[in-house]
Amino acid sequence: MTTRRLPVYILLDTSGSMRGEPIHAVNVGMQSMLSALRQDPYALESVHLSVITFDIEAKELFPLTPLEQVRLPEIAVPGSGATFLGAALELLIDRVDRDVILGSPDRKGDWRPLLFIMTDGSPSDLQCYREMIAKVKQRHFGNIVACAAGQKAKEALLKELTPTVVSLDTTDIASFAQFFKWVSASVATGSSSAGVASPTSLPPPPPEVQVVI
């Protein structure tokens, strides 16, 4: 049997404002998220991870890769630059269409992909961003979670993409650590007990993160 893959896409803001402590915190957070996922026997069997960064352009840091084979490169921030989140979504859609296996009479398809987006600002390519939202919605993601990090992040714009927006007051190591911990817990819920009332609910966010209602 092909064990169903769980594709997980992480979109990370690497615009100029992430320079310094914020990007350092993201690197640390990603590293510990990866270790945590590797300690989960369910995630090890199913999770495939891809990371896309976006600043003045969108870049695929690495394509969909089995968890055990992921080697996380240091994520750097260019000199300065805009926040092309729309371009990132465009690249994401291209990759999802290319890489996610759909079920066919002959083969079990992948689980619906999960998408996590972290940004500390707002999309510079707003028109493209809004066009892409419609296309993202056609891709049937299992879950989309956006994280608005720091004071300048625009929650309202993110809410056009997904109702699940978590906001971090600061962009330091402690708050990112909590966020990535939550991401790995969400990814791993596939193997834990499902409640009678809400079988697909996410684990509750950690105390430092507030869910915008």
Partner: peptide
């Protein structure tokens, strides 16, 4: 070291529906 119902029969192109059918109504011993 394998699951008794997780074989290669596909019931639906949508993974969630396929899962529900292959563990539920259409469950079949591999």
């Amino acid at each position: 070291y394998r699951h008794p119902l997780r074989g290669d029969k596909v019931h639906d192109a949508d993974p969630q529906i396929d899962e529900t059918l292959s563990m539920g109504e259409k469950a079949l011993f591999v």
